[in-house]
Design a protein around this nucleic acid. Structure first.
Lengths: 332, 332
DNA sequence: TTGTATGCGTTATCAG
DNA sequence: CTGATAACGCATACAA
């Protein structure tokens, strides 16, 4: 059992309130007393009891990260954990703890409401994947510190932070146009599900329209296999495009396979570029030019916001964060 | 502000202790009263205050996962997060919360000791990466519920859980020998750092010795590039091996590149097998036969242990957990 | 079966 | 500058 302030008080010959104030660096305690009490605390290996402290302070220094943490997610979406790492590091440094909570989209409204009412945490960060209008309503009603990671796809009054996929798209397009490429095909997933790609496409279009050009977009390409197939048909055209731009590494891999099968060379016969640097654009043959996003940094930013909100619950943050970076490699 | 048991008591016309007992399903409260109070609680949207509850119960239902969470870890080591996911899901279901804590090996002894003394959590799970003799000493002194994920590489009295890398090695070797392969090369990292591979090698050797065969091991192959280089030299031998067995996907990729460069065919001219199914053994060309480990399941197991320990702090668990699975694909 | 009273370890208020 | 004491919301031993 660890020492309490009662033990310290007895040892120091003062009252517990003096001890408490001394340890919390209150202005009303003399430096001399503070120093003495701190020394005693050290020598007795005193650690304030976190539970009692939380109770008395009405704060526990906990921030929840709520997301759908399904089996395999670590492999499927390491970005998520890069965010978590960024969150955790910032919070740790400031004495906060990050709690992970698995929440599904369906259960979120009820569960999140319970979390807020029980005051289990001082604030909550939510992954946009579990967001619904209903949840937005729950969050909007209370003045509970929150932040959504990912831009909600409906009107709301929530605080959120996101990667600027539009900027990423624009950077990619600008780069390709600068290199002199004109006939470009963009491969992405279902136009209903793949919101991220749509936003990238918005950015791409902006860049193209500036040059009075347009981009060919093929949707419904949601995996490696589909990408191989579509690339095959693309390569059978009389006039093949100059570049294929893929919305992720897996699609790019499909392209590589098909291009190689045709004995074409990248980037001589056709260039290739991808969004995301993960998981193997640096390992592919040839290595792929890619647009990378710093998710760790975004986690950091998010943590910064939530801590701010915990301290000043009334200010609303509706923000936008981005650092897409272009990594030029062999494939363009 | 959420309702308290005082509000419920007033509403129900009973005392707060009756409310408390009713909500905690105490045997000494009549079913009728329980039901009535629960209904009132529901209707008033009562949620017990987590901080007050933790304080009174001297438990807060928090389990800490302490590991070195450095930037990029989500990509470098998604296994880690698969464990975290497994931990979280089990704990969530039982009303516990998982807290992530970034701890370095150097700071671990002090930090972990503080965590224990402050009673910030009811138990702690540690990644073996931050384990040191000093930390083991700290953990050993107190009867604090703990579990190490990963086998400590020194004698100790800790509780731990790990993948049986030996079994994985043996399964891999048995499979290859069964297929009739004899001349096998095992590629792994530095023999000082790469403890996991050494343990796999132990298992491999057991299988080989049963057949009175031996395996060629090449150490110091710690990345893709090294793997390409060494494979090149291997393929220049007069008599090339029948199989190359790699300790991870990246090394396997290096092999593929070199083999392809020589215009050899997998598995006709030379077979290839790898440990780990991640991140691209299913996508490589050809797809790779692999030994996979279920980290999610291990996380689950670990969580089960720690909950057990929290409830009965005196029992010591020194365990060993494994489900390496063979996934046969095109490369063998 | 229910109620009273006390404690949990700390912070905060107010008096000295 | 320091100390006595209330308060935090809940759980629980003990009394009724």
């Amino acid at each position: 059992m660890s020492a309490t302030i009662y033990d310290l008080a007895k040892e120091a010959g003062v009252s517990i309130s003096t001890v408490s104030k001394a340890l919390n660096d209150s202005y009303s305690i003399s430096e001399k007393t503070k120093k003495r009490i701190r020394e005693i605390a050290d020598s007795m290996g005193y650690q304030p009891n976190a539970r009692a402290r939380s109770f008395a302070r009405k704060k526990n220094g906990i921030v929840i990260f709520a997301a759908n943490l399904s089996r395999g997610i670590g492999f499927e979406n390491p970005h998520l954990f890069e965010i978590v790492t960024g969150l955790d590091r910032y919070l740790d440094e400031r004495g906060y703890s990050l709690v992970l909570k698995h929440v599904t989209r369906e259960d979120a409204p009820v569960q999140i409401k319970e979390l807020m009412n029980s005051e289990e945490a001082d604030g909550i960060i939510l992954h946009a994947g579990i967001l619904s209008r209903q949840l937005a309503f729950v969050l909007g009603k209370e003045a509970y510190p929150h932040l959504v990671i990912g831009k909600p796809d409906f009107p709301n009054t929530l605080s959120w932070i996101d990667v600027s996929h539009e900027a990423a798209g624009q950077i990619a397009a600008d780069y390709l146009l600068d290199k002199g490429y004109r006939r470009i095909v963009f491969l992405m997933g279902d136009s209903n599900d793949d919101q991220i790609s749509l936003r990238r496409l918005d950015g791409i279009k902006i860049a193209f329209e500036e040059e009075e050009l347009s981009i060919e977009t093929i949707t419904g390409i949601c995996d490696y296999e589909k990408s191989r197939e579509i690339t095959e048909t693309i390569l059978e055209r009389k006039r093949i495009p100059e570049v294929i731009l893929c919305t992720n590494n897996y699609l790019a891999l499909g392209c590589i396979q098909s291009i190689r099968a045709k004995n074409l060379s990248i980037p001589k016969d056709i260039a290739l570029m991808t969004f995301d640097n993960y998981p193997f654009s640096m390992l592919a043959q040839p290595t792929l030019t890619a647009i990378e996003v710093d998710m760790y940094e975004m986690g950091n930013q998010a943590a910064r916001f939530i801590v701010q909100r915990i301290k000043k619950p009334n200010l609303q943050t509706q923000s936008f964060c981005t650092t897409p970076i272009l990594i030029e490699r062999e494939s363009t």
